[in-house]
């Protein structure tokens, strides 16, 4: 068990949409007439590390992409701190899946991190030395400042993931959506990420993290969303992350269930 158990929440999980960091109502998303998310309702308070957990194809990435307006919503509304995404965009950061970009691109680690500042730099202006300094600091915080000038294809998978996190860090937003930041990273990177997440939390930031490793859910996240095309359960991890709920989420997928029960044995 982690030491930092969150303060008990009111039993009624319906938060006031104004105070909720993320409030989703009736969200349905479909790809080419095939629904991927069905009637999702969510309300998540501020300053939480939120794990979004579910089997492959459950719509985890779709959920955060729909929140970020990267995918068209078939129906429903998403609010961040009581306002629409467009209004709140400047306070929302995004860490895409590592595989979503071409790492052979002719830029250095530092240049990628500086992209986090492009929004602040604005149209037509170039990246100045003070921006580079900020980017370097962000790289330092994820422990790879010495790799700043390396071309990004020369970084290991974990280091690439840290570059993405540094970019989000440099952007310095109040809410973060992260798509599988822990996927295929080495142990040192995993620790660097989790330390960063904890720091974010202590600063009152809210992070939504798509996560696939059931064994670490209760260790990393104080709020868990169990997802399988619809919301199976959402709430404080110690209430939600139970064998029963997991079997509802993962259905008959036995191997995963086994993994889940192992995870429960380890963490409870």
């Amino acid at each position: 068990m982690t030491a930092a158990v969150p303060a008990p929440l009111p039993k009624s999980k319906i938060l006031n949409p104004q105070s909720a960091a993320l409030h989703i109502q009736d969200l349905t998303v479909a790809y080419h007439s095939k629904p991927v998310l069905w009637d999702v309702d969510l309300s998540i308070p501020e300053a939480k590390l939120v794990g979004i957990v579910g089997p492959n194809g459950a719509g985890k990435s779709t959920l955060i992409k729909a929140c970020l307006n990267l995918l068209p919503k078939t129906s429903g509304a998403v609010q961040v701190f009581g306002k629409s995404y467009e209004e709140q965009r400047s306070m929302i950061g995004y860490v895409p899946q590592r595989e979503s970009v071409d790492w052979d691109f002719p830029v250095s680690a530092l240049e990628v991190v500086a992209m986090g500042l492009y929004g602040k730099i604005g149209w037509f202006r170039s990246v100045k030395s003070r921006h580079k300094k900020l980017a370097k600091e962000a790289l330092d915080r994820v422990g790879i400042a010495d790799l700043a000038d390396r071309q990004i294809s020369q970084l290991s998978g974990g280091q690439q993931q840290r570059v993405f996190l540094a970019r989000a860090l440099a952007q310095d937003t109040r809410v973060y959506f992260m798509d599988e930041p822990f996927a295929a990273v080495d142990a040192a990177t995993e620790r660097a990420i989790i330390e960063l997440l904890k720091e974010f939390k202590s600063l009152g930031k809210t992070c939504f993290v798509v996560h696939h490793d059931l064994a670490t859910v209760s260790q990393y996240f104080d709020w868990t969303v169990l997802l399988n095309m619809r919301i199976v359960k959402s709430g404080p991890t110690e209430e939600v992350f139970t064998r029963e709920n997991l079997s509802k989420t993962y259905g008959g997928k036995l191997t995963i269930l086994e993994e889940a029960s192992n995870a429960l044995r380890i963490t409870h």
Partner: peptide, 17 residues
């Protein structure tokens, strides 16, 4: 700067507005 971001990571560019 703008076209670089577009070419490297258009999804991320969109989230920055």
């Amino acid at each position: 700067k703008e076209w670089t971001l577009l070419c490297f990571d258009s999804g991320y560019a969109a989230t920055q507005g």
